[in-house]
């Protein structure tokens, strides 16, 4: 059966409300799941959620606009974030940044025209001892060098990484979990 985008959103929100409930504290979990599935929380989705939780849509917007990982505009299928942690060598970080822009043909803060890649600079992501560090969706790459950036992007193109804006990538126990790789 074919659903319009709006019908799909309504179905998704209804399903999530059934799981998380209608209390205000359910809002974050609902937004997280919508963001992960649709790669953004559209204005329409905010209205549907607000209606279901019986709060004003602007309340939902105020939450979406507050948090870094929630967004009202669609991000690329692969969000590539470079950590701007001061502990990392500036020269190495700059080289990786330059190479990322060259390989993708976009600047930091932009999304590629085909909607495949977004490039972002982010604050410290807790990998200060192993820089430079890149995060692609939920996966973390440590000790990245400029000459390996091309291979990393090929990985994405070949779809060996989980797509979507999914921020959750499960891994096994310990620091050597499958959600983390070293380039």
């Amino acid at each position: 059966m074919f659903f319009t985008e709006r019908q799909q959103i309504e179905r998704d929100v209804e399903m999530l409300v059934a799981v998380y409930g209608r209390e205000r504290s359910a809002l974050i979990s609902i937004l997280q799941d919508i963001q992960r599935k649709h790669r953004h929380v559209s204005e329409y989705a905010m209205q549907v959620i607000a209606h279901m939780l019986d709060i004003h849509p602007v309340e939902v917007y105020s939450v979406v606009s507050f948090y870094q990982f929630l967004s009202d505009t669609p991000a690329g299928r692969y969000v590539i974030s470079l950590s701007d942690c001061i502990a990392h060598s500036k020269a190495q970080k700059d080289a990786v940044a330059r190479q990322l822009e060259t390989e993708l043909g976009i600047r930091f803060g932009e999304t590629s025209a085909d909607g495949r890649f977004s490039l972002k600079r982010v604050g410290c992501i807790g990998m200060c001892d192993q820089g430079p560090v890149i995060r692609v969706n939920g996966r973390i790459y440590s000790e990245v060098s400029a000459d390996r950036v091309g291979a990393l992007i090929s990985d994405c193109v070949a779809d060996t990484l989980p797509g979507g804006a999914c921020d959750i990538r499960e891994s096994g126990p310990g620091d050597a979990g499958s959600g983390e790789s070293s380039l």
Partner: peptide
């Protein structure tokens, strides 16, 4: 758990 550490979710849930 901060979003950047979500890759540990599977491990933590198993513990």
């Amino acid at each position: 758990l901060r979003a950047e550490y979500a890759y540990m979710l599977g491990h933590l849930e198993s513990v």
